[in-house]
Design a protein around this nucleic acid. Structure first.
Length: 591
RNA sequence: CGGGGUGUGGCGCAGUACGGUAGCGCACCGCGUUUGGGACGCGGGGGUCGGCGGUUCAAGUCCGCCCGCCCCGACCA
């Protein structure tokens, strides 16, 4: 492609709203243009990179037996009602009515469609196992898109769905994806780790997220450098060290003016935070007896030095939804915000962290403005409805497996794999007859990777102050030819033009900057766009029957003779591919 | 949804305090010069100042309401 013909505009400055490097550079280099919050156009250069990313996905999916298909973006709401997700999912779901006033859904994901196809077409164990996938646009009306392509509302995702007759089959497909996903990310040039994750609204038995570690990430991960334990902070387990036992002391009411936070309380009473109990008020949406849901006020207690983990609490309660209580709701229960106490509280479910019963003589609220109770002891002074692990792992906590200090890090979720089990099969009646003629539910798994987000993470990982530096496997073009003074020198123009033709004829993807621009402009644009190999043709080089060779990821330039250009370019492309391939390794399964 | 910010030509910004009829850099078009790291000269084109309403002789500027976008949080297969 000649740059003079390319539908692409580079920007000297990034729009003010672009903050992270991948967003700024992808916009400046002309890869993406924003239409609305979280809605982007992918320009020709981006399309080429996305196609390469998607082809890598295809190769890896096909390698584990996947079969590509395409499913609709627009669904009738009926199937989403069947699985209840029509009711369970809030404003994130795109809903509209068709001309006949029927409820319709914009696809957020395709479990329902898969299940609908499967229940109609699969009848026998002979048709299992199967693995299908598609690469499709999805819509999730995220409350807060951010960081360019990292978090968007309209996005393209490679989604695969495994269908099995038994749990062993699911496990096999799950593990195949586990490795295939590492292969995909490694081939795209980004390091990732797989962490165990919350199954969330997908339901199911097991889930891993593939995280690209970066400070701009929005998920917090808990990692053990010693044994390799890793988990999303939402579900990370850790060892809790009980304090030294103490004789329970008599409870004592103390005056604590303006001590409404743990910080202020510990400061005022001059006690360490771990000697205090923190009251957290939540409202949980719980399943009701009538089959519906009802909001229930929840009083959660964790030690003052710890943080409530809302995901753990929600899972403990089997809550559909969980949110902080408002001040009015707190007052309505008879508790006093800032001075709330589990002691003497009635008719409110109390959930305490499992470390609380082992922590004697804590300071808790007195349910009276300006007063706390010292020496509150679980069991003697109050009881809980549930004792469970509801606190969040923090930096330095002990690893659940080996006891070494845990580290927290930020990451972007670039992919996930789920063992769905029979949740969708049960809801939508996906059954088959096994060898014995017994009707059984099909066992499903689902596995997703967002291609735009992946492209952004690659940009995030591979750039410098001048611009993008694409890995050879996903670069829009492999080689960029820059001609200098082509308007003045017929020779330069000829050499560059021939080189462009020759390399293309040899199957190399070439971008040829043939514009009548100053050298500075061309070099700057080349650096910004980030094609891995640059060949410069100028009066200076043609006089020596050579061109200048430079790799985008290296500073060195060297002259190579025209007769050796193809061989050198080929060799360097192979070398770049080999370096990537060397990273595609087997990763032990961490179940 | 809560908190904060922001909106002036394609991009980056000034002008708003103190109301007087819109400006700078880059980009774009034409001509000429220039050509190894974002050139120069001359001449051009392009803006309902986010929207609506109000105050005023006069509103980019003051007042009210609304909207978009960005950041933090909540939320998130």
């Amino acid at each position: 492609m000649r740059v003079s013909q390319l539908f692409n505009v580079t920007l000297r400055e990034a729009p003010a709203e672009a903050e992270v490097a991948s967003h700024q550079l992808l916009v400046r280099a002309g890869f993406i243009r924003q239409l609305a919050a979280g809605i982007f156009s992918y320009m020709p250069l981006a399309r080429r990179t996305l196609t390469k990313i998607e082809n890598i996905m295809r190769e890896e999916m096909n390698a584990i037996g996947g079969q590509e298909m395409t499913m609709p973006v627009v669904h009738p709401a009926d199937i989403w009602k069947e699985t209840q997700r029509w009711y369970q999912i809030g404003s994130e779901m795109g809903r509209f009515k068709d001309k006949n006033n029927r409820d319709m859904v914009l696809a957020m994901t395709h479990e329902e469609v898969v299940a609908d196809i499967v229940r109609k077409d699969i009848r026998s164990y002979r048709q299992l196992p199967r693995l299908i996938y598609h690469i499709q646009t999805k819509w999730r009306d995220d409350p807060r898109p951010r960081a360019g392509l990292i978090r968007v509302r309209e996005f393209t995702m490679k989604d695969s769905y495994s269908l099995d007759a038994d749990w062993e089959g699911l496990d096999k497909q799950y593990r195949a994806h586990y490795q295939a996903y590492f292969n995909i990310f490694h081939r795209c040039g980004i390091p990732v780790i797989a962490v165990k994750s919350d199954v969330g609204m997908m339901g199911g038995q097991m889930a891993h997220e593939y995280m690209y570690l970066t400070p701009i990430g929005e998920d917090t991960l808990v990692l053990c450098d010693n044994c390799g334990y890793s988990a999303n902070r939402q579900i990370a387990f850790f060892q809790k060290t009980p304090p030294a036992p103490e004789e329970p002391l008599p409870a004592e009411k103390v005056y604590t003016p303006n001590a409404k936070t743990i910080e202020a309380l510990a400061n005022y009473l001059q006690v360490p935070k771990q000697k205090t109990a923190k009251a957290v008020f939540m409202v949980a949406t719980l399943p009701a007896e009538d089959g519906g849901y009802k909001d229930t006020f929840i009083f959660a207690i964790v030690r003052g030095d710890m943080e409530l983990n809302e995901t753990k609490l929600a899972n403990t309660l089997k809550a559909k939804d969980l949110r902080p209580a408002t001040e009015e709701e707190i007052l309505a229960t008879g508790a006093v915000p800032g001075y709330a106490s589990p002691v003497g509280l009635k008719d409110v479910p109390v959930i305490v962290d499992d470390l609380i019963p082992q922590s004697p003589n804590l300071v808790a609220g007195a349910n009276e403005e300006g007063y706390h109770l010292k020496n509150v002891n679980y069991g003697r002074d109050y009881q809980a409805n549930i004792v469970a692990d509801i606190t969040a792992a923090q930096d330095g906590d002990a690893c659940i497996r080996c006891g070494a200090p845990l580290r927290t890090a930020r990451g972007v979720e670039v992919g996930n794999i789920f063992k769905l089990g029979t949740r969708y099969s049960d809801a939508m009646g996906c059954t088959f007859l096994d060898k014995d003629g017994v009707e059984k539910p099909i066992i499903m798994g689902s596995y997703g990777i967002g291609s735009g987000r992946l492209m952004a993470c690659i940009a995030e990982e591979h750039h410098d102050e001048k611009g993008l530096i694409w890995p050879i496997t996903v670069a829009p073009y492999q080689v960029e030819i820059v001609s200098l003074g082509g308007q003045q020198s017929e020779k330069v123009q000829q050499v560059a033009g021939h080189l462009y033709q020759d390399l293309q004829n040899q199957g190399i993807e070439v971008l040829y900057d043939d514009r009548d621009e100053s050298p500075g402009v061309k070099f700057m644009d080349a650096d910004l766009i980030g094609i891995p190999i640059r060949l410069t043709v100028s009066e200076r080089t043609v006089q020596q029957d050579s061109v200048e060779f430079k790799r985008r990821d290296q500073e060195e330039k060297r002259l190579i003779s025209l007769s050796e250009v193809y061989a050198t370019v080929k060799e360097e492309i192979d070398r770049l591919h080999q370096a990537i391939q060397a990273k595609v390794v087997e990763v032990p399964f961490e179940g």
